[in-house]
């Protein structure tokens, strides 16, 4: 059971990694002059859209949180709307946090907002897929020993890795190397992406190594 679950997780995560790589490699064939650094905003859009669609599809196919009850259609719609609102709110919140961290308030709003959207895709969207619009569950998952399944452990790891990636991505900005990737927000979004990819790869491996110690309390 557990082994199979881990294998499924690994497959799903590898698919995500693959998508991220595709967003870098594929668009230049259709789009002249598309590069991650040169047309960064376009890449940000492409990457967020692809990763979010993939996540939603994976969620629909795999259904990791088995909900036993049948939910009414109206309830589903309201859930979906709630999810959208939550996602938008998280974008705004990330934007606010980035500005508080020192990003310019008025200039380059688009850059900052798209970066916030990317971060939300890497973090909030996954949470929404996995846990639904249920803040209590979110807080439970993100506290110590709060995960109740390997999916939730994986969620923890990828989210934390993405945010750490973005955090570390800010470090090269003050350096005076005049590199093209030091322009706001390229280093941060690249950092977040690398963190996300690393998290996706690390999560199944970490769960695999620690499968003896990991005993999930049933709810």
């Amino acid at each position: 059971m557990k082994e199979a679950e881990i294998r499924r997780l690994l497959a799903a995560n590898l698919l995500c990694v693959f998508t991220v790589i595709l967003t870098v490699v594929v668009p230049p064939f259709f789009w002249d002059g598309f590069t991650v650094l040169g047309t960064h905003l376009a890449w940000l859009c492409v990457c967020s859209v692809c990763v979010s669609t993939l996540n939603i599809i994976l969620h629909l196919v795999l259904k990791p949180n088995l909900s036993p009850k049948r939910i009414s259609f109206a309830h589903k719609i309201s859930r979906f709307l709630k999810c959208c609102v939550y996602f938008f709110m998280s974008c705004i919140l990330f934007h606010a946090i980035i500005v508080l961290y020192g990003a310019p308030l008025i200039e380059s709003v688009t850059e900052t907002f798209l970066f916030a959207v990317l971060l939300s895709t890497f973090t909030t969207l996954q949470c929404l897929c996995m846990l639904g619009p249920n803040l209590q569950a979110w807080i439970r998952v993100f506290s110590k020993n709060g995960a109740t399944s390997i999916w939730e452990s994986s969620l923890q790891i990828t989210t934390i890795c993405s945010i750490f990636g973005a955090w570390f991505g800010a470090f090269p900005i003050p350096l005076d190397w005049d590199q093209p990737w030091q322009v706001w927000p390229i280093s941060c979004s690249l950092g977040a992406t690398f963190g996300y990819v690393a998290g996706l790869i690390i999560a199944p491996l970490w769960i695999h190594w620690n499968r003896k110690q990991l005993t999930y309390k049933s709810r």
């Binding site: 961290y101 020192g102 807080i139 993100f142 900005i173 003050p174 350096l175």
Partner: peptide
């Protein structure tokens, strides 16, 4: 980094506040 040391400190302070906030959230809600 020496020329822009203030950025380091602002960054750390912000992170500190966010970590405090996270801890608070957890304590309050959970």
């Amino acid at each position: 980094f020496i020329e822009e040391e203030h950025q380091t400190w602002y960054f750390l302070i912000n992170t500190l506040c966010l970590v405090l906030c996270q801890e608070l959230c957890r304590n309050n809600f959970l």
